[in-house]
Design a protein around this nucleic acid. Structure first.
Lengths: 263, 263
DNA sequence: ACCGCCTGTTTGGTATCGTGGAATTGAATT
DNA sequence: AATTCAATTCCACGATACCAAACAGGCGGT
């Protein structure tokens, strides 16, 4: 069904990760189960086009610059990123908290843009852009406003790991959290992923009425959860609603279910 | 020499840009000069692996999330990015200016990381990560400390376009600028690329003694070029030198030429 | 509501192109 | 110098990717 050689080339690219950024031909051929000769041919092609680069000293391979450039193009032309740039800056300025935007993909959240109120923190993209859905405000904001069926599928497939004493690892407890989130309209992360770090998250909707992603503000627990919390939550909700409007969503035009079936 | 189908698949990915983020099968087949059937097969493979995504309404194609993730991995595991994260944050805090790091690639500079002192500006990566070498401090800082032969090749291949009245479009004038840059140790961009925006840039060296990239601070002309200018330049130079040390470069161990031939 | 027209998609037969194994180079270690 | 391991090149076979042409399906125009 898929073109073999192309498929294999992409498989090779997928081997690279934060943990394993450098690979040799032999390692790769073992990993994908192909002969070294075959792998070499694929790699040479990827190399020529700049999708891989070779360390002249070790002769091993890393991902190439081209991939970075294409990745930036992806992020820069993503609708939700374009629509949210202005409002997010505004929100960061108002709250003096770090703002992040993420979309749902394959059972976890992919951070697609970030705005810092100050320069103290390291660029977050350098950490790797995925966060778990069950222990982040940004993830729970999406889960709470998704189809029940999709949530069910998510729960079936997911292993819960505790990162802090506060991490919710119980299915029932998570579902209750989602009910509360639905009621209040925004989600909390009270040091569930990182000790000392708390977040508030709110969903963003798209034209169809389905959840497109989520927005969050985060910072030290004292700041975020202190007496200004309600103000932060309100500003966050307003910004998320504004972005949703830019995305073409008008609340009242029919809720999630109705908007799904066009007539 | 290269594997045909893989080469063609990568060519297809390369068609996408900031200007043209969405393409259909017919457009692609025209652009790469292949039959629609062939292109469809390649696209289907790229789609399955998440390197492309298809808009369900228009049936056209965009770059896929996978590419973004791999791009982030590239940036996150890049040596110069890892080594510079700490010093750059420090510099941003000290100067309250935006700091950027870029590497040289194919006659222009690729921004690989950015640190903001405040949240006012939009995430820069969303603009597209390339800047011209001849009209940026970050570019001239690299050009000035590169091999003459390489500069010569660059000049031969490059078309100069004026973006502001200050843009240097004359070959001789640029060479003089580079001489001055070499003497003072850092480069200026006095509104040469963007009206009202000025930058100071300094080179970063790697083990071999060759230039690995450059660091810059930028902001409104009045702030950057005002009476604090010399202080900014000093802080910038110190930070760039610190990063160079982390990269394994020790000045005095032999200059560019000598370090190239290991004994 | 019908009809072209321009999309994206599927199919099948053929020649091409990628494949895997073995041979080669080359560096690093003993 | 000898040994080992990795990256690279070579080549003949046969699977596989390619193209052309046919199919499907939505949109705009009349």
């Amino acid at each position: 069904m898929a073109i073999q050689s192309v498929d294999r080339a992409l498989q090779i690219l997928n081997l690279f990760s934060h943990r394993v950024p450098v690979l040799g031909v032999t390692e790769i051929s073992r990993a994908v189960g192909l002969s070294k000769g075959t792998v070499h041919g694929l790699i040479r092609t990827l190399l020529q086009q700049g999708f891989l680069q070779q360390d002249s000293a070790t002769r091993k391979y890393r991902l190439g610059l081209k991939i970075y450039e294409l990745g930036i193009i992806w992020a820069g032309t993503l609708e939700i990123n374009q629509k949210s740039a202005g409002p997010m800056n505004q929100l960061a300025k108002e709250t003096l908290l770090e703002c992040r935007l993420a979309i749902w993909d394959g059972d976890s959240m992919v951070i697609t843009s970030t705005v810092h109120p100050r320069a103290r923190a390291v660029l977050p993209h350098q950490f790797g852009p995925r966060v778990h859905a069950y222990c982040s405000a940004i993830g729970k904001a999406v889960l709470a406003f998704m189809d029940d069926a999709q949530v069910e599928r998510y729960l079936k497939r997911t292993q819960f790991t505790a990162f802090t004493p506060n991490t919710v690892t119980d299915r029932q407890q998570l579902l209750e959290d989602l009910v509360q989130t639905r009621q209040r309209g925004y989600a909390f992360d009270r040091e569930e992923a990182v000790q000392g770090l708390s977040c508030i998250g709110a969903p963003i909707y798209q034209r169809s009425g389905q959840v497109a992603g989520a927005l969050s503000v985060s910072g030290g627990t004292q700041r975020v959860m202190g007496d200004k919390m309600e103000g932060f939550a309100l500003a966050l909700m307003n910004t998320a609603a504004e972005i949703s409007r830019y995305m073409g969503y008008f609340p009242g035009y029919g809720d999630t279910a109705a908007a799904d079936r066009p007539r």
